[in-house]
Design a protein around this nucleic acid. Structure first.
Lengths: 127, 127
DNA sequence: AAAGCCATGCACCCGGGTTGCAAAACGTCC
DNA sequence: GGACGTTTTGCAACCCGGGTGCATGGCTTT
């Protein structure tokens, strides 16, 4: 995988963001790049396990840089929280996903643990 | 909430399906109803906690009839499995979602525990 | 019977995701 | 350095799921 200028841009944008970002958000941020280019960069990143996508109930996919140096393993996956008021997504990096036992014959590729509710900020400031 | 003919149709279709169904699927099945009608029926059902929606990584929302007679509580939520080969969604009704401890100030409204991978059927029949 | 309300169907819009295609950038070999 | 093949990029367009505005029609209430 070659370190293209665009790829570096995307990766840097994702690293600086402290929460998972969506494609539309990146289109906003990286105004020099085209939507499809960002999309393709993200696809390549996913294939090479540099980033992974999560779904947070907002309806749009969010992307996140994988944790470990050797890509992201299952144990590295953490829980996510989607605030239904401010629509932000939080990574609870400290809270790992509790494992479950799959039925016979089923093999796991990835896990998503998503909590929806009200975040602490929005709980404090009632509108 | 009135038991309209259409609402009965939708509810019956959901009860007979043994896995969560998507809106497009219901449009296919209930050919007499319009997409927007089904959509609105599902919205009403969700407001009255008759059904709830889950996201299974396929990109489209799936709907499922709530379990308990008094609507679906958090403890009633179960895990879901999305097969990346046949694109079916399984309800592991027996496997409840293991709880996590949220940080201070965060309140939970709903939980989604989604596993992606290969189901037992697709594991048997290699293509 | 008249008025009001709600459900329905139709058309349409919106926005995220995705692809086809042609131009541009890059790397390589002579 | 020039020609060539490969990869990446930008543009345009498409697909599809979700959602809405509006007018009709049926049912209820007075």
């Amino acid at each position: 995988m070659k370190p293209t200028a665009n790829r570096i841009l995307v990766l840097r944008a994702m690293l600086t963001a402290q929460y998972p970002v969506s494609l539309p958000e990146m289109v906003q941020t990286l105004s020099t790049m085209d939507k499809s280019s960002i999309f393709r960069v993200l696809s390549v990143f996913q294939q090479h396990h540099v980033v992974h996508s999560i779904e947070d109930g907002s309806g749009v996919l969010k992307y996140e840089v994988c944790g470990g140096a050797d890509g992201c393993t299952l144990s590295d996956m953490h829980t996510h929280f989607h605030c239904e008021v401010c629509r932000r997504t939080f990574c609870f990096k400290a809270i790992h996903i509790p494992p479950i036992e799959l039925p016979e014959g089923f093999s796991m590729e990835s896990v998503n643990y998503l909590v929806k509710g009200v975040c602490s900020d929005c709980a404090k400031k009632p509108r």
